[in-house]
Computed example of a mutant assay.
Amino acid sequence: MPQAQNLPFAFSARDIVLMGRSAALGAFATPSARDHDAAEAALARLGIADLAGARMTRLSGGQQQMVLIARALAQNAPLVVMDEPTASLDLANRKRIEDLVLGLARDGIGIILSTHDPDQAARLCRSMVLLHRGRVLAAGPMRETLTPATLSTLYGTKIRREELSDGSLHFRA
């Protein structure tokens, strides 16, 4: 799932999600009822079924991001790769996507995602790889990897790690 996509044609959101099913189609095949059902289910799972007929060129950046996530879900793949899945999303949709990612992981779907937000990484990831200038800076379990030292090196500024009363981590510059 890309971070963003620039579409030269005014496809509907439904068409974009249905394109996620193309890997399951043979050469010259058209989407079946099962493919359409998978696309509709993905739109519904994200709570954006009402956008199905809307043209992508008319949607906000956040709405487009939600449609791209629905396209990835429609593939029914055992592994989903997401590049900054919450970019351009408001707080409510960001929470919806984070909950979706956690739910997919609980359902046995592998998730690989990139994020620049250490708080989000702490909420969503059990293990991680931190990349700095094209090299691995740290890799391993979340609590061992997201340290003030590694994050200070990564972001080039002093980072503090706070553990909240619920056990979650929060990072501050």
Results as ranks from 00 to 15, higher is better:
P141C: 11
A70N: 01
F28T: 11
H132I: 03
L146E: 05
S60C: 10
A24N: 13
A74C: 07
A121C: 03
A13M: 01
L104I: 03
R94T: 15
I109G: 02
H116Q: 12
D119I: 00
N93Y: 13
T86H: 06
R71V: 00
P85R: 09
Q5P: 02
A33H: 14
T115F: 00
R133D: 09
I159T: 10
G134E: 07
A49S: 10
T115C: 03
I109A: 04
S152Q: 12
A121Q: 01
G108Q: 05
L68Y: 04
R143I: 14
D37S: 13
T86N: 05
E144A: 15
L91S: 10
L131R: 07
L46Y: 08
A10Q: 09
N93T: 04
S114E: 01
R133Q: 12
Q75A: 13
F28S: 12
L130Q: 11
R172T: 13
M82H: 11
G134W: 08
D50E: 06
S165V: 14
F28I: 09
A87K: 10
I109Y: 06
P148H: 11
L104A: 02
V17L: 03
S32R: 14
G53C: 05
G20F: 05
A52C: 03
R58D: 12
R123M: 11
N6L: 05
R34W: 09
I112D: 09
P31W: 08
S168Q: 15
L164M: 14
S22A: 12
M56R: 00
M142K: 12
R106M: 06
K158P: 12
S168P: 13
R14I: 08
R123W: 07
T150Q: 15
A23V: 12
M19Q: 04
L102P: 05
A72C: 06
N76G: 09
I16E: 01
T115I: 01
A74T: 02
P31G: 10
R96A: 06
S88R: 07
R133G: 05
A24G: 08
L79F: 08
R14T: 04
M1T: 14
D166A: 09
Q63P: 03
P118W: 01
L124N: 03
V81A: 09
T86R: 08
A33Q: 13
D99W: 07
Q120V: 08
L7C: 02
I112H: 08
L68G: 02
A24I: 10
A173H: 13
L68T: 00
